[in-house]
Simulated scan of single mutants.
Amino acid sequence: MNYKNYPMVSRVVFGRGSFNQLNDILAPKRLNAKAPFIFLVDDVFKGNAWLTSRISLAYDDQLLFISADEEPTTSQVDELVEQIILNHTDRPSGIIGIGGGTLLDLSKAVAIMLTNEGESKDYQGWDLVKTPAIYHVGVPTISGTGAEVSRTTVLTGPEKKLGINSDYTPFDQVILDPELTKDVPKDQWFYTGMDCYIHCVESLKGTYLNAFSQSYGEKSLELCKEIFVDGDGSEEELQDKLMMASWHGGMSIAYSQVGVAHALSYGLGYLLGTKHGLGNCIVFDHLEEFYPEGVALFKRMKKIHGIILPQGLCSKLDEDEFNTMIDVALAMEPLWENAMGKNWKQTITREKLRALYEKM
């Protein structure tokens, strides 16, 4: 048996107000006066002095506001890398991503592509990265995606929607400050929280499950229930819990894998641009056959929080569009194997996926 030697985030700070320590954390990592820190920040914080005033820029440091309206693409990563290389004589001291899953994934990908040749689409897959990324830091401002802890960066490329899954992807440093999540809109909070919940269900019901994944997955699931079913605690306590649920949920899939909902959600995301958290919810709503208890509880949480999911996303699609989504979903082989076992191709047919997409 060959066990995976899995890389973890080597340093993490947790606590309300811990974002204030960002500058102290970065100072010893500066390579020289010409090697800047590049801050990639979700543009919802543009003009938000509460957050931006705490980022100290020195020398050639750069703060780039980036929209998270669209999920990250390989071409966006390549453009950012080119821009950084052209604007600075020295390679940056580090990339700091501040935002939700989109910004965190983008930051991880940029850090990798600053040291690896070619285009980011060449690295979509498993263990294709050969050179360590530059120093990169993640600061989540929304909880649930697990992007702050995972070894993948989900990118939509010209041919597929697939992450750069590698040992060099995880952040070197993460700052978990639950206070940064205080202004997340309710529906966004729910969809991203459900991304975390679905990570746990898929990990805990998967064939790849082991005691390592299980211990993290069970803790995360327990926290999700406290937050979304019981509403246990003050608003601040719930923010703290969801940040930890996200971390544990991300750790749970680190040593195992996600499953059916994520595979199908990638198809929706690739063809229709459906945001990842929302896409997972739309798909998961129809997966009773695979995750009966998980889906029943999901429907209950949806009801508790008055969430109404979009319907009929696939009602006007033609044959080619369905086939594109099915191709993207079927390409996620490790996810299907985790969900269904080694013989998954016997049950997961194109017709089966077509019928599932038609319900959405």
Rank of each mutant, 00 (worst) to 15 (best):
N87T: 03
P92D: 03
P170C: 12
F65P: 08
T153S: 14
S166G: 15
H88W: 11
D43I: 04
A49C: 02
K161G: 04
L63Q: 15
F171G: 11
E117V: 07
L63E: 05
P36F: 14
A68Q: 02
L63K: 14
T89C: 11
I85C: 09
D60M: 05
V41W: 10
I112L: 09
V41Y: 15
F171H: 15
F45G: 03
P132V: 02
K121C: 11
N116S: 07
D127A: 11
I85P: 07
W50H: 11
T156Y: 00
S107M: 01
T145L: 00
G144D: 01
T115E: 11
V139N: 04
V44Y: 03
I55S: 02
I112M: 01
Q173R: 12
N116G: 06
P72E: 04
H136R: 14
Q124V: 02
H136V: 05
T141G: 13
Y123D: 09
I55K: 08
M113Q: 05
T131A: 03
G125S: 13
V154I: 10
P92W: 15
L86E: 06
N87Y: 00
G97C: 04
S93T: 09
Q62W: 15
I95V: 05
V129I: 13
D69P: 03
D167W: 02
T169K: 10
P132H: 01
H88P: 15
K161A: 01
I96C: 03
G163S: 11
T73A: 03
D60P: 09
G157P: 12
Y135A: 02
E71I: 01
G163E: 07
D69G: 11
I85Y: 08
T115I: 00
M113R: 07
I112H: 04
E82A: 14
Y168H: 15
I95T: 03
E70R: 09
V81I: 01
I85M: 09
I134G: 01
G94A: 09
A111I: 07
F37S: 10
E82T: 13
H88V: 13
E71N: 11
G118T: 09
L80W: 12
E70C: 03
K108G: 11
V149L: 06
A109E: 00
F65E: 07
A58C: 04
V149M: 07
T153Q: 05
F45Q: 11
I85E: 09
G97E: 08
K130Y: 02
T152G: 12
V81R: 05
V149F: 05
G144R: 09
L63C: 14
G163K: 11
Q62R: 14
G163A: 08
S67D: 14
D60L: 14
